[in-house]
Design a binder for these strands. Sequence first.
DNA 1: TATGTTATCCATAGATCTATGGATAAGCGA
DNA 2: TCGCTTATCCATAGATCTATGGATAACATA
Lengths: 232, 232
Amino acid sequence: MDKRSEPAKGDGVYEQLARIGKVVVHPKRIELLELLCQAERPVEALAAATGLKLTTASAHLQVMRQARVVETRREGTRVYYRAAGGEVCRFVTALGDLARARLAEVEQILREIGAADGGAERVTRSELLARVRAGEVVVLDVRPPEEYEAGHIPGAVSLPLEHLEARLFELDPDIEVVAYCRGPLCLLAPEAVARLRSAGRRARCLEDGMPEWREARLPVATGGEASKGSPR
Amino acid sequence: MDKRSEPAKGDGVYEQLARIGKVVVHPKRIELLELLCQAERPVEALAAATGLKLTTASAHLQVMRQARVVETRREGTRVYYRAAGGEVCRFVTALGDLARARLAEVEQILREIGAADGGAERVTRSELLARVRAGEVVVLDVRPPEEYEAGHIPGAVSLPLEHLEARLFELDPDIEVVAYCRGPLCLLAPEAVARLRSAGRRARCLEDGMPEWREARLPVATGGEASKGSPR
DNA sequence: TATGTTATCCATAGATCTATGGATAAGCGA
DNA sequence: TCGCTTATCCATAGATCTATGGATAACATA
C-alpha cells in the first residue's frame, strides 16, 4: 500500500518512460534541460536565464529531478543542478533533431530570428579540426563564461556575445573566425557571426554546438583560459 | 487572430519542441510509437495491440499526428499509421536508453518480467554477422509477421512467438539460435530464448532489436520469406 | 543566537489533458 | 442507393498540471 513514495507509481515500463517524457512536455523544462547540458548552475541562475520566478523554476526542477534527468550538488546555501549524464544530452539532441526534421515551423522560426543565416555555410567539425591545426582559423566560444569553463573546444577563445564588440580588437582581422554555441537551436553563434561580418570580418558558424562536439568524442577542455582571466 | 489553426500556437522554438514532447508524456503513446517504429498498422490493430478503445487510440494518434511524428496512408476504409521517419525511431531509442540508464526501476521491471535474463549473454550485432556468415547460427525474428515483412535481418526466419512450439521442428537442434525482436524493452525475444532453452536448445538474444540494427546501417530485407508463405 | 540568502514546500485557482459514448464521415460492395 | 466497416469528431466529467504567494528549511556569518 505504499502509495506516496515518489519513485514508483505505475509499474509498467512505459509508465516509467513517460516519467521522462513528462520532462519535455513543457517548453521551459526543455529550455532548462538544454542549459543544464552545457553547464551546472544554481536555481537562481536558471530562473533568471529562462525568465521564470524562483519558485516556479524550483518546481520544474523538482519534476526533472523526480525523473532523474538532473542531479544536484549543494554548495553552501546554493544548490547546483546538472544534467544527469550523457544520455540526457543525447535525448535532448534527438528531440531537437526530430523537431527540426519534422516541424517545418522550427526551421521557419530559426530563419525568422536569423539563426539559419549560416545554414548552408556552416563549418563541419572535421573541417574545423583541419583548419585550426593549420592555423587558418580562430575558434570562438560565444557562450557565457560558466559554460565555457564547464567544457569547450581546446584552443577556443571565450568571448561571450555581450562582450563581442568591446573585445573585437583581440581578434586578428586577417584570420577567419569560427563561432560556436550550444547547438543548432542556439542563437548565440549565428548572432555573433552576423555582427562579426557587419564589422568586416570573415566569420562562420560551426555546425551544431558543444554537446554534439562532445558526442563526436572530440577532445574537450575545461576550466578558464590559460592566457587570460584570473585563474582563481 | 488566427487562433484555431493547429500548426501554430506558441511560436517559440521551445514550444515547438514541447509539441513533440507531448507525444511521449503518455505511456500508451510511447507504446504506440514503438509499435509504429516496427511497422505501419491500421488504427484498429494499434488499439488492439495496446489495449485501447478504438476512439481513444484514434485520439492519441491525432495528437501524434499533430506533432508530425506519425503519418498516414489510406487504403480503402482503413487508415494505416506509420512513424514519420528515422528521427522518430532515433528519438524513441534515445528515450529508452535514457530511461534504462537513469531509472533503476526500468531495469528492475525488466528483470522481474524476465526480460533481463539474457542481459549478460546477448549477442552483439557484429558477432551475429560473423557467425551467421559462418553458418554457425540461425537468426529468428519472433515479432508478428507484419513487422517481419516491414523489415528484418536478411536471412532471418520469421517465427512469431505464439507459434514457437508448434514450429520448433523447423529448427535444426544442433545449431544455436539467435532471437531478436523490437528492442531492449521488448519481451518477445527473451521469452522465446527462455522457451527454447527449456526445450533443450542453445539460444541467445541479439542485443537491442530491429530499429538499432537499422540505425547501425546494416542491411535490412523486406517482404515475406523466400521459401515459405504466399509471396503476395 | 539573530539575520540574510537561497531553495523547497504547501495550498489553490485556473488551465489542460484523458477516456468515453454517441454522432458523423469516408469507402466498399451489393 | 443502402448497408457495413473503419475511423474521426464532439461534448463532457474527472483527473492532472502550472503558476504563484506565503511559509518553512538549510546554511553562512556576525
